[in-house]
Simulated assay, not measured.
Amino acid sequence: MSKSKSAVAADLDTPTDLPQQSVDKISVALNTLLADAFALYLKTKNFHWHISGRHFRDYHLMLDEQSDQIFATTDQLAERVRKVGGVTLKSIGQIAKLQTIKDNDEDYVPPREMLRELMNDNKKMAAAMRKAHEIVDDCKDAATAGLLENFIDETERRTWFLFEASRQEGGNEE
């Protein structure tokens, strides 16, 4: 028998002043962001491991830095779900069901395409964070809103860096 989204084991039932409907909405929004963060983290690491070309070192280091930053969001998102009384992801299977960021399993992706794909994924992530921000605002969850505001800023920074780096790879450098 399947449990509803709001069913929480008694020992995990974190006290909160938020109504259950708000807990459920916040949990769904944050768990989707969490799944996307894991998907984007792994794709960024994949491209970090498989980048090639004359800008290898710069791109390799940038993607490593960005993957670390993305991974750092995962614990904060999951813990926020728990703080408001929800239940968070438990498996790779759940991530696969919830993620909206598409995997890239190609044997070879040219460097510029890698950077552009990650740029678009980060843009999509920022848009999803803004939608989640609207949900948490409606639920009067200021703490989650503040967390998302910082993550949006970091995601926009990654997007900017990827945009600029992908322009150089295209041969527009001086």
Rank of each mutant, 00 (worst) to 15 (best):
L118N: 00
A126Q: 03
N104P: 07
E106Y: 04
K124N: 13
L33G: 05
M119T: 10
G93Q: 01
Y108Q: 07
K45S: 00
A96E: 03
K131Q: 15
S67Q: 14
M129K: 11
F47R: 00
I135Q: 12
M114V: 10
A37H: 03
N122S: 13
A127C: 14
D75I: 07
P110R: 11
F47P: 01
L40F: 03
L34V: 09
E134W: 06
T73H: 10
A132V: 02
L34S: 07
I135D: 06
D121S: 14
Q94N: 07
A127D: 13
K45G: 06
F56M: 02
D103A: 07
A132Y: 08
S52W: 12
L118K: 08
K97A: 08
S67M: 14
Q69A: 10
S67A: 13
I92T: 15
D64K: 07
D137F: 05
E106D: 05
I51N: 00
R116E: 12
S67E: 14
D121H: 13
L61T: 14
Q76Y: 14
L63F: 04
Q99I: 01
S52I: 12
F71K: 09
R130I: 03
A39V: 03
L42G: 10
N122P: 12
A37I: 09
T100R: 15
Q66C: 03
E113V: 14
H48E: 06
I70Y: 00
T73C: 04
E79W: 12
V81D: 06
T88C: 00
Q99C: 05
S52H: 12
V109C: 08
K90G: 13
A72H: 08
R116V: 14
I70K: 00
K124T: 08
Q94P: 02
Y59F: 14
Q69E: 04
G53R: 10
E117V: 06
A39T: 00
D75E: 02
A96T: 00
A128I: 13
D68W: 04
D36A: 04
R80Q: 02
L98N: 01
L33D: 07
F38P: 01
M125K: 03
Q76H: 15
K97D: 01
A78R: 01
V109E: 10
R57I: 02
V87C: 09
